[in-house]
């Protein structure tokens, strides 16, 4: 196992050596995960791309950690020479998520940043073209944020086709028949309410 992860460990050492504050781990073969301070993402990706040869940007993803009041950006870059992928993660303040753009590194980042701006409200400083990408004239909280209520939005925006009002809830039907009174603390555990 040690031998197999040789390349990954070399990359890990190099990253650790250059960015002391980075938390680096190897989740599995061909993957190196790095958790970074926000201000380091720019130099870090520059280092990966120009020095370590991570030329291919696979993906930028965003995760909203509502409970922790943070928005996580996940950059996945790949080195075609040693076939290792680095997953770099930073966490932005959810109230005011801001980070300088990375447009100059990979041209296609423009699209990713436009989408993340639109869907999560992350401001990419210096991007210059954070216009609508998929949505049009969207107002209100960015829709991919966890506190955006899809069901509420759908109810306000669309209507139900009539004819299904006679639907019954199974658990309620049973309690009506038996006279069972479900206490409030128990109701949250009804798996019937998956949504």
């Amino acid at each position: 196992m040690e031998v197999k992860l040789q390349v990954e460990n070399e990359i890990l050492d190099k990253i650790k050596h250059t960015f002391h504050s980075a938390e680096v781990s190897i989740p599995r073969k061909q993957r190196v995960e790095v958790k970074l301070r926000n201000d380091l993402i720019h130099p870090f990706l520059a280092y990966l791309k120009d020095t370590l040869g991570f030329k291919h940007l696979s993906h930028i993803s965003t995760v909203d950690w509502l409970e922790e009041n943070e928005i996580e950006l996940v950059y996945i870059v790949m080195n075609y020479d040693n076939l290792v992928e680095v997953i770099a993660k930073i966490r932005l303040d959810r109230e005011k998520p801001e980070i300088p753009t990375l447009r100059e590194f990979w041209p296609q980042i423009e699209t990713y940043e436009r989408e993340i701006h639109e869907m999560y409200g992350v401001n990419f400083l210096g991007h210059g073209n954070l216009t609508d990408f998929i949505l049009e004239d969207w107002e209100g909280i960015p829709p991919m944020r966890r506190d955006f209520d899809t069901v509420k939005y759908a109810k306000e925006t669309y209507f139900n086709r009539p004819g299904r009002e006679d639907a019954q809830d199974v658990r309620t039907t049973i309690t009506k028949k038996s006279g069972e009174e479900i206490p409030e603390l128990a109701k949250v555990y009804s798996v019937r309410h998956l949504e």
Binding site: D132, F133, I134, L135, P143, F148, T150, V151, L194, E195
Partner: peptide
């Protein structure tokens, strides 16, 4: 220009098992 086929699948998945 895209946006004609946005079905918010990624959002919908967060509300599904």
């Amino acid at each position: 220009h895209v946006g004609y086929l946005h079905r918010a699948f990624e959002k919908l998945m967060e509300a599904r098992t």
